[in-house]
């Protein structure tokens, strides 16, 4: 559905997006994960034909961004980050305007608009002014204008930013529902979001792809350590730590919170049985014993910070020369 090859966008001397290449199959939900200023919006703007890339190319819904930009724009739905809406219109008017501007045939228009409003749960506020709607409802109006033309590809820039937790869940359910009919590319800097909705993740930072995989695979491949958490009673933390560190396969032990210790071991080595045995032998109380997977959050931080550090070093070297 989307193929990007070496997409590059340069603003003056600043490289906003640096030869980005990826592919998206139909029906996929791909998450763009990255800190603010990573180049997510710029990439989306290139894919939606808002502006062309400095170099590189892409196809969206089978059309080339240079030659068939109009056809792409007929086949996509886009929700920009700030959810731009005309406050003096009602959701029904605004979505109707979007349908007309996107070239939905006159005969279908009314039906498409009502369908979009219905899917976004907007029917009960459809005739109120947008300026009087809450943030959550506005977000839905934004989504409704994006899906009104039944696009093959939906591009959503930070669709849950600025919403309260209940609204976030709401919008996520909605996106998952929409994803059954179209291919969705969404960006976010909220990690649980990606784990909750995306089938694949691209971690992007400094305009480059740092990692691209399913959330599960990323977790597996990027966590070199396995971490086990124990909670003990009847023993001083320091004493326990010293003893636990002697277990075979354990690389390091440290305190995580009072009475809680983390124990690292190489991936594939599970020290839980040994830990339990030792606790019983020493006569301590075992309150918790838990194997922890590295969360996407940790991976994200790891990927992004390690890149940032290496970039800083590079810059320092450059400066010295």
């Amino acid at each position: 559905m989307i193929t990007a090859s070496n997409l590059t966008k340069r603003f003056n001397e600043k490289l906003a997006v640096d030869s980005l290449s990826f592919e998206m199959a139909a029906g996929e939900v791909l998450g763009f994960l990255g800190p603010n200023g990573a180049g997510k919006t710029t990439t989306m703007r290139m894919l939606t034909c808002y502006f062309p890339p400095t170099s590189g190319t892409a196809t969206v819904a089978g059309f080339d961004i240079y030659n068939d930009s109009k056809k792409i724009r007929q086949n996509i739905g886009y929700l920009p980050e700030l959810v731009p809406l005309h406050p003096e219109m009602t959701p029904r008017e605004f979505v109707g305007f979007a349908a007309a501007a996107k070239g939905v045939a006159h005969g279908d228009r009314k039906r498409f608009v009502e369908e979009a409003l219905g899917r976004c749960n907007l029917l009960n506020v459809a005739d109120q002014l947008i300026s009087q709607l809450s943030r959550g409802y506005r977000q839905r109006v934004g989504l409704a204008q994006a899906i009104v033309n039944k696009p093959k590809v939906l591009i959503l820039d930070e669709p849950t930013v600025g919403l309260d937790p209940a609204q976030i869940l709401d919008i996520r359910t909605l996106i998952r529902d929409i994803a059954q009919h179209s291919t969705v590319l969404l960006s976010t800097h909220i990690l649980p979001e990606v784990e909750a909705i995306c089938s694949r993740v691209i971690i992007i930072s400094g305009g480059r792809i740092r990692a691209l995989d399913t959330p599960e695979n990323l977790t597996k491949s990027l966590s070199s350590n396995q971490r086990t958490l124990v909670e003990l009673g009847g023993v001083e933390d320091e004493v326990a730590a010293e003893a636990l560190a002697k277990i075979e396969g354990v690389t390091s032990v440290g305190p995580s919170s009072p009475h809680h210790l983390w124990i690292d071991s190489p991936r594939g080595v599970d020290p839980r049985a040994e830990i339990a045995k030792m606790v019983v032998e020493k006569g301590w109380q075992l309150l918790t014993l838990q194997s922890q997977n590295m969360k996407l959050e940790d991976i994200f931080l790891k990927v992004v910070t390690s890149e940032a550090t290496s970039e800083e070093t590079r810059e320092e070297v450059g400066g010295a020369v």
Partner: peptide, 11 residues
């Protein structure tokens, strides 16, 4: 208000 950006992504 940003609606121009939206307009540019309409056909």
């Amino acid at each position: 208000i940003g609606t121009l950006e939206l307009l540019f992504t309409y056909p």
